[in-house]
Design a protein around this nucleic acid. Sequence first.
DNA 1: GTCGGGATCATACTTACGTATGACGCGATC
DNA 2: GATCGCGTCATACGTAAGTATGATCCCGAC
Lengths: 223, 223
Amino acid sequence: MTRPNQAQPPAQPASAIVIVVDDDEGIRASLDGLFRSVGLQTRLFGSPAELLGSSLPDGPGCIVLDVRLPGVSGLDLQSQFVRQGISYPIIFMTGHGDIPMSVRAMKAGAVDFLSKPFRDQDMLDAVTAALERDAQHRAEAAAKDDIRAQYETLTAREREVMGHVTAGLMNKQVAALIGLSEITVKIHRGNVMRKMGVRSLADLVRKAEALGVSQTRRTTDQT
Amino acid sequence: MTRPNQAQPPAQPASAIVIVVDDDEGIRASLDGLFRSVGLQTRLFGSPAELLGSSLPDGPGCIVLDVRLPGVSGLDLQSQFVRQGISYPIIFMTGHGDIPMSVRAMKAGAVDFLSKPFRDQDMLDAVTAALERDAQHRAEAAAKDDIRAQYETLTAREREVMGHVTAGLMNKQVAALIGLSEITVKIHRGNVMRKMGVRSLADLVRKAEALGVSQTRRTTDQT
DNA sequence: GTCGGGATCATACTTACGTATGACGCGATC
DNA sequence: GATCGCGTCATACGTAAGTATGATCCCGAC
């Protein structure tokens, strides 16, 4: 949970999944074989609709997607995914792409953009990069979710106090600011420390920064 | 040395500069006119060598670069720039590009990749985006430089103490850890606060995080 | 050699922080 | 109506932090 995530050079895809979306059955089969040959799981779809209609596991993975697909453009799908909470890194393929299309895809955050036909190794390299990016993203998201879960347990008052305390105010300043006695602020502060699972102000500040909840006013500096 | 580097709050692109590198004189002149028409300054170069050999102002700006240039490939130039400390965002142009080339450029951090001929508006949009990115980058770099300048004034001991204090250790813990008396740690700590220009531990923690100098060991959490 | 900065430590005092105990009011829930 | 969580506050005690004064030691610079 809060265990330091060792950056493992070879991202161990314990059960990473590659989602393939292409209307060409041959391509799907070919990619399926390629990915399985290196120990990756696969899910094959002939259209975006199939993908959006299916339930996906929430393990690590990535998406390999043809830009030109029946129904929707692959590029438009990226925003679709975002709305659906699907945050897998995307690798685009295309048989008839052009530079503007590839640039647009990359700007939108695609991991790679491969022209058909491509070499198997290029695809595997792209998938490897995508899975690494996904692992990175997942680790950060998980850490942040844990912190947010703790923050959710705070009462309104406690959050208010936390915001001011992590901004660097003293208890008495917080008290004056929100019209309380210092002793009450201390109690809230103690509750915040306990609920946020920290035992030092330094750690609380870091968690507050991760959440962006510090009432950060700029009044520092000056040599 | 003890000069306080005030971070200039509003990054006013008073005179942003666009550096154009293209071996086609006509293109250079055309772009020169385009950029000047919208109030941007320009610097024109016929080859990468000219650019690398000249001294550039260090104001806000960006680079518009043809991928195919005499001498060096435009893509290789990106790494060249990094080595020379040139961190301007880059917009690539090309008359004979392909998808892999554009993808490679975008992966390397290019802002855009335009095929010739391009519309003036597309180039202006790209430059606008590049300048925004540069302004963002500059602001962050300036803030971090100020913090680092303060950190440079610390003695070895003071940095050591700062690392442990911002990790959340109490004075006595720091003292035991590095074999000092608590009172000495307090003195160093006070010096750190003064030299780093902060008046609260919270702000010190933030600056330490920006520098990555916290002796962050994970011993927290507990719900 | 002397001077100055860095590092060390002690004593002493003040302020800040953390927590425990006890108490009261309030609103929602049972 | 009683219970419970929340918020509020007081007194009190112990610990932590911050600062001031004074002192010793070392080392490099003048």
